[in-house]
Amino acid sequence: MTTMDAGTGRPRTTSVACRSHGSRYLAYAPDADSPWYRDLLVSPQATLGIDGVPHAAYAVPLEGGERGFVLHLLEVDAARGRAIADQLLVHHDELRKALAEARAELDGEPVRGRPGVRRGLLGHCVTFCNGLRMHHLREDGAFTAIEKAYPGLAPALTRLRQEHETVSRALLDLDGLLQGKGELETAALREEFERVANGLEEHFAYEEANLLPALREAGTPSP
């Protein structure tokens, strides 16, 4: 199970024994200090790995004083599809704003003359990268339900999953550059940053062009 770390916002993946209960899963926490349990109390979205396939799930606390959650797997109908489309645009807008803030750190004087720029960019990168990783992990889980409802989207979803992996590697390269020691060259940093930013914008544009029309159409998904 992957949750969002309640303290850092980073993805947290934990091996949790879940019991199947129809289309839902039951997860019991051994104690109130279980990290994944605390995470879900703050942010109830989770991604479950079931037989190697990611599934988006929403956690609802168990009743009767039991410590745990009922995990409802995402199912996509016409109304849910439209809601996913709207939320997708909200997330993309938030991520685009974060990119713009990071780009603003690079504008102005050369990096050599601004010793604080590395710290500023690193701060933006930590916030942005954590948000993007969570966004993509949750999307991977949602894609499973979307593909079931809209089989015709399978080729686009396959490409988007592959792009998630490419973006993840690019973020690691950028983070490594910012975390490294020694002089930080403006040109090298700008090149790496623009590679990430341009790749993301292409990814967002492809996703919006290929998923939104299907998710927003009034018709009923395939049975």
Score class of each variant (00 low, 15 high):
Glu75Ile: 07
Asp86Lys: 04
Ala46Leu: 08
Arg12Tyr: 07
Ala27Lys: 11
Glu163Ala: 11
Glu185Asp: 15
Cys129Gln: 15
Gly123Ala: 04
Glu202Arg: 13
Leu189Trp: 08
Pro213Cys: 08
Leu71Ser: 02
Glu185Met: 08
Leu184Ile: 07
Asp31His: 14
Ser43Asn: 12
Cys125Lys: 02
Ala78Tyr: 08
Leu95Glu: 09
Glu63Arg: 14
Pro54Gly: 02
Leu189Met: 12
Ser222Gln: 10
Ser23Asn: 10
Val111Asp: 06
Val60Cys: 02
Ala98Tyr: 02
Leu48Gln: 04
Gly141Ile: 08
Asp5Ser: 08
Glu207His: 07
Glu139Leu: 06
Val117Tyr: 00
Met4Ser: 14
Leu132Asp: 10
Gly176Leu: 05
Gln87Asp: 15
Leu41Asn: 13
Gly64Thr: 06
Asp33His: 14
Asn198Asp: 15
Asp175Ile: 05
Ala46Ile: 06
Gln179Ala: 15
Arg114Ser: 06
Arg195Thr: 14
Ala27Pro: 12
Tyr25Phe: 12
Gly180Ala: 15
Met1Gln: 02
Ala205Met: 01
Cys125Met: 11
Leu73Asp: 05
Gly141Trp: 07
Gly176Val: 03
Gly49Glu: 13
Pro61Arg: 00
Tyr58Pro: 04
Arg161Asp: 09
Lys181Trp: 04
Gly81Leu: 02
Val76Ala: 11
Leu160Ile: 04
Leu89Gly: 10
His135Glu: 09
Leu62His: 00
Leu171Ala: 02
Arg119Gln: 06
Leu200Gly: 01
Leu215Tyr: 01
Ala78Gln: 14
Pro151Met: 05
Glu66Ile: 07
Pro213Tyr: 06
Leu137Ala: 14
Phe193Ile: 14
Arg114Ala: 10
Arg19Trp: 06
Glu194His: 04
Ser34His: 09
Thr186Gln: 13
Ala170Gln: 12
Leu71Pro: 08
Thr220Tyr: 04
Leu88Cys: 02
Leu106Arg: 06
Tyr206Cys: 06
Tyr25Glu: 05
Arg82Cys: 03
Glu201Ser: 06
Arg96His: 13
Leu88Trp: 08
Leu172Asn: 09
Ser15Pro: 09
Pro115Lys: 00
Asn198Thr: 13
Leu62Gln: 00
Pro151Asp: 04
Gly123Phe: 02
Leu215Gly: 05
Gly64Gln: 08
Val126Cys: 01
Ala197Leu: 00
Thr8Lys: 11
Thr2Cys: 03
Phe204Met: 05
Leu62Ile: 01
Leu106Gly: 13
Leu40Lys: 05
Ala29Leu: 00
Val53Asp: 06
Thr220Leu: 05
Arg82Glu: 07
Leu200Cys: 03
Gln179Leu: 15
Asp5Thr: 01
Arg24Tyr: 02
His92Tyr: 04
Ala32Pro: 10
